[in-house]
Design a protein around this nucleic acid. Structure first.
Lengths: 294, 294
DNA sequence: CTAGCGGTTGGAACCGGTTGCAATTTCCCG
DNA sequence: CGGGAAATTGCAACCGGTTCCAACCGCTAG
């Protein structure tokens, strides 16, 4: 704030280049000059401006961290991991909240005008076109929690959701259940679609298994609870066990079951997804598919 | 990326100033020129660079959002609220994770070198000297979840923790309890100290009330659980009701109580703090002091 | 003694914008 | 149609840095 390279140069009695070189490692400066500069800089409380230097170096060390999910506790873990890793690598996260938040402008253009060096999209629910538009922007982009694919259009880091769906189905079958259900998040989310596909495939591979499918309107407690209430009130009998597409969803479903006087897991089994920190809390003790966030 | 103001100027056949003025509202440009510029800009996919302009305007529209708590679900709500408000006002949050994260440099110097226009510190556990050093930096700083005071050294936005402690004590007393306990977070946190003080004062204002005090090592499930286990195993009898300094802490304490075969609230009453979203989940159904985050 | 070398230094141009100022256009009115 | 005010425009300097380049330094080797 206020003190610039020129001020330091004047006080130290050297050229502006010398000051600049002192703060650029690898540059050629004599020890004597460096010392003079450092003294002057300390005296003035000088901090080089990243943005001024970014003009020529083209480095802002800024990473756009984009998400639309600020409700699900798993994302606090996600943000923690990301910000720590980004910081440890000497970068800084510019956070973008896409969830029903009014951004005032196209988020991509915004990130471009901030010259971010990379973009991380942490969401399994953003429309693929939007993700694609980020990826086509010249700015290196990684989509986490996106769709696992052999030929992805966007660099993607994600679990194999189909495989996970299969895993969950097998766990329910291993318990001896013959009527099992998939209770996913929003049907438009690729994560929901893929988990459902894997679930179905694994279930149908076995003889005499009956499956049902339904979707909650969001990956949230309320949505899971509402959907399970609907199932309970519905004409069709409940399945013996459900794979819910998310831990919070599961907790919502469980709350609806308990309220209806049903015991989990004695009357109905539930498997969640993510293994959020609180899944292991004793009051919740949720069986779930672990996602290795680190 | 790549295309600059000059490129646009050349293509549009106008001066660089004209282009700059087109993108600065309030500047004097004829409709004809504006149209030519816009066409050229669209054709080239031009985005003005915030940082280049910040050099002269001194505006980065960046706000440093600093926190050391990426574990407690209440902070996801905090981040959601902050980022949305910051974005709605046309600013962008530069997130800083101070929690055991290695930042590679002094966080304040870092934010200075990014020319943030303001700093929001969201933490009740940061050492006051650190908060103070932010506030003395020339950069407008607000400390949220800090200490409520008539003469704060730092601009602070916080609930009256003493008042809240009193509120909780009165709620326990109103239930008829005569032996009540305070189970706070880390003793060094001002929030813990103030809630404890308010709790004690309100409790001692009544005749024949006995209070006990203890502290968990962090505002976390594990710490709350561990501390309650210690109390259960201890020589002293348990209090009839506890005010825990945080919701997650409460859930931890409850899990320890249940594990010991005690019922909440029949054997021991618990009041939490914050009213995090999941406090109202039916499986948790925590009595708590609401903090109006919005 | 001098040529040559590697290391250090300052000057000046440049990064991508903004803005004060003077010159030029446009517009309005008599 | 002329004149003056208002609106528009381009030039050039500047924001806070970096970097190319040429000049310079102290030394060593021939």
């Amino acid at each position: 704030m206020g003190t610039t390279l020129k001020d330091v140069a004047v006080l130290a009695g050297v050229s502006r280049s010398a000051v600049s070189r002192t703060f650029t490692d690898g540059a050629s400066v004599s020890d004597r000059t460096r010392r003079k500069v450092m003294e002057a800089a300390d005296a003035l409380g000088y901090r080089p401006s990243i943005f001024a230097s970014s003009l020529t170096t083209r480095r802002t060390r800024l990473i756009g961290l984009v998400s639309d999910n600020f409700k699900n506790p798993i994302f606090l873990e996600v943000f923690d991991q990301f910000t720590r890793a980004i910081q440890a690598a000497g970068y800084r996260p510019l956070l973008v909240n896409l969830g029903e938040a009014d951004l005032g402008s196209d988020p991509l253009e915004m990130l471009q005008s901030y010259s971010v060096e990379g973009i991380v999209i942490a969401s399994s629910t953003l429309p693929p076109e939007m993700v694609l538009s980020f990826a086509q922007s010249q700015i290196p982009t990684v989509h986490t929690f996106g769709r696992y694919s052999q030929a992805p259009q966007v660099d993607t880091l994600a679990v194999n959701n189909e495989g996970c769906g299969g895993l969950a189905a097998k766990a329910l079958l291993a318990r001896g259940y013959k009527r099992i259900g998939f209770l996913g998040g929003p049907e438009s989310a690729t994560s929901t679609q893929d988990r459902q596909a894997g679930f179905k495939q694994a279930a149908l591979a076995e003889e005499g298994v009956e499956i049902s499918t339904s979707y909650a309107s969001a990956y949230s407690f309320e949505a899971g609870r509402a959907e399970m209430k609907r199932l309970i009130a519905g004409a069709a009998p409940l399945a013996q066990g459900y794979f819910c597409g998310d831990d919070v969803l599961s907790v919502g479903a469980i709350s609806a079951l308990k309220e209806a006087g049903l015991s989990v897991p004695d009357d109905v089994g539930i498997i969640g997804f993510n293994d959020m920190a609180m899944a292991s809390w004793q009051n919740i003790a949720l069986t779930t598919v672990h996602q290795p966030l680190e």
